[in-house]
Design a protein around this nucleic acid. Structure first.
Lengths: 311, 311
DNA sequence: TTGTAACATAAGCCTGCCTTAATCTATAGT
DNA sequence: ACTATAGATTAAGGCAGGCTTATGTTACAA
């Protein structure tokens, strides 16, 4: 490896201009400085880079070879620095964002599209997943920030949560729901634990973690085996199953607001307060957000809150 | 443009190792020096490149972007320097060579093949042309050296011939020749100027510069208009034309040695000494030849001379 | 609580880069 | 032929900037 990269810059300009003097003007140093730098470089790689002709430097094969490497780099570097610089003045570049699957699927494409209307130079990388997958990505800088919901996975253990900064974005009401027909046939207004625990459940995992969480909250009962009749990978699928009377399931209330109004889907309440699933923006505690990040976060939060999920 | 490229090297290692300390070990400087360099760099581009976490640096988007440019460059640079270095120890890389058309066509392919058997890491770029095109390429470093013959174009004017170094490689005997049948029918042993100048000529240019040079040498007569019946672009074509009794033409004697021995082609002599076309190796006066160049030049000259063009 | 590991900061030294000035040399101009 | 000029190299010395040592800070482990 070369010990002094700075001399490559001198070489680059000398090669480009074919002259020490004009290079020295570009570099704002004396021609002597350029001459000396160049000699040091040649000494270092122990090869002539130019043959000295009167008032002119003619590149040797080694010089040509080196320039072929340095030239494109200088171009790219200049472009890269320009990008970094201009992303301080106006949003620019790729934003790498994590989000829960439902949240991401439901809101992100539209948000991104609308944001890009305003800031067309911003591109996106969207990683969907649960906190267990997203937080490590935030920690290692593989994504810039993430949205996470804490309910469905709230009982999982995360070490070092204090390296993150959480800011609540929106609250979802989490309910246990079933179709009206299922309710009338199976629930019959009996909201006791012993009755409810024997229902047929639609869950997101085979272990029914979401269901367990719901019962833990409402009855303070854990470690119960529930009858999971269907495992789904999305709330939309769950809602569809519920509509078809397949059983009861956990869902964000705003996603079934219409169905509840029409009486197709019925929430199952208990005396305990509602479960609120807090969706938070999470970023590294010490990270100074870039302009692009700040603007997009502001944009996204405003849009989401203006949608008023409880309406 | 970045003012201090050296700091990129520090950045590169810090990014690679994700740690100031381990970068400092690689760079053989103190941990503090690395820390300071990095801060200077961030200051210079006015963007954070890493978010500082406890005992760890996590790259930001800007850092990732910069690394994406610097990383491939460092790889290529290392490779390039390795190449340059090893081309000091054994022949390596591309040789860019100029040669006269005939000379190049006749000898080069075989030479290159045989050389590459011995030094397979050497590749070639061969530019065929006359001195008027080759010398400027040597001067501007676009080819490393060239072989030129001076006879056919000897009367052309070249400025600054003293920036080149010429070393004779081989002497060709240049003759005026025709077929035996043409000789017996048209020349009839009359080698006088007045008789010869009225023959039918095969030449390499419309202006018959080669023919003019021959008459200038043998009779000291210039500025005569000759009857050029055929213009060819190669000695092989000229030889073919001569064999078919089309007229007389200038050719290197060794190219028609066999035909002369068999009596098919006849040279036209005069009392003046033979014309010797000296083929020289030409390189820039001040250029220190690389190992690859020296070895190939030696190889080529030995091969050519061992062929003994006058045999 | 203490110890430790890793990064940041402070202060001063010293290397190495840059400047100025002189020298060299090929070309242009008279 | 003589001089002037322009561009490169060489030499010497000043000084900025990078490096080192020492200290501060902080989170994690024991």
């Amino acid at each position: 490896m070369l010990q002094n990269l700075g001399r490559l810059k001198v070489f680059y300009h000398v090669f480009s201009k074919g002259s020490v003097l004009s290079a020295s003007k570009i570099l704002h140093v004396s021609q002597s400085a350029v001459s000396q730098s160049l000699q040091k470089l040649e000494e270092e790689i122990q090869s002539q880079l130019f043959t000295r002709m009167h008032k002119r430097l003619v590149p040797t094969a080694a010089g040509e070879r080196l320039f072929a490497v340095v030239h494109p780099f200088m171009q790219e570097l200049a472009g890269c620095l320009k990008n970094i610089k201009q992303s301080r003045e106006k949003p620019f570049g790729e934003l790498r964002i994590g989000a829960p699957v439902e949240f991401g699927k439901a809101y992100f494409p539209g948000m991104v599209a609308r944001f890009r209307e305003q800031y067309p130079e911003v591109t996106f990388y969207l990683k969907l997943g649960n906190p267990a997958t997203l937080l490590p990505l935030v920690e290692t800088g593989q994504i810039d920030f993430a949205f996470v919901d804490l309910f469905l996975t709230q009982n999982q253990f995360f070490a070092n949560l204090d390296i993150y900064h959480f800011s609540p974005v929106v609250d979802e009401e989490i309910i246990l729901a079933c179709s009206k027909r299922y309710y009338e046939k199976q629930i019959k207004s009996d909201h006791s634990f012993s009755h409810l625990k024997s229902q047929q459940f639609i869950a997101y995992r085979h272990n029914a973690q979401d269901v367990k969480n719901w019962f833990k909250h409402h009855f303070n009962k854990g470690n119960v085996k529930y009858d999971v009749v269907l495992v789904v990978d999305s709330q939309q699928a769950l809602i569809s199953a519920v509509k078809h009377h397949a059983g009861v399931g956990i869902v964000a209330s705003h996603l079934v607001a219409k169905e509840m109004k029409e009486g197709l889907i019925v929430p199952i309440h208990t005396p305990k307060p509602k479960i609120i699933n807090q969706i938070s923006l999470v970023l590294l505690q010490d990270k100074v957000p870039t302009l692009t990040e700040k603007i997009f976060q502001k944009f996204l939060i405003e849009k989401i809150q203006s949608m008023n999920l409880f309406s």
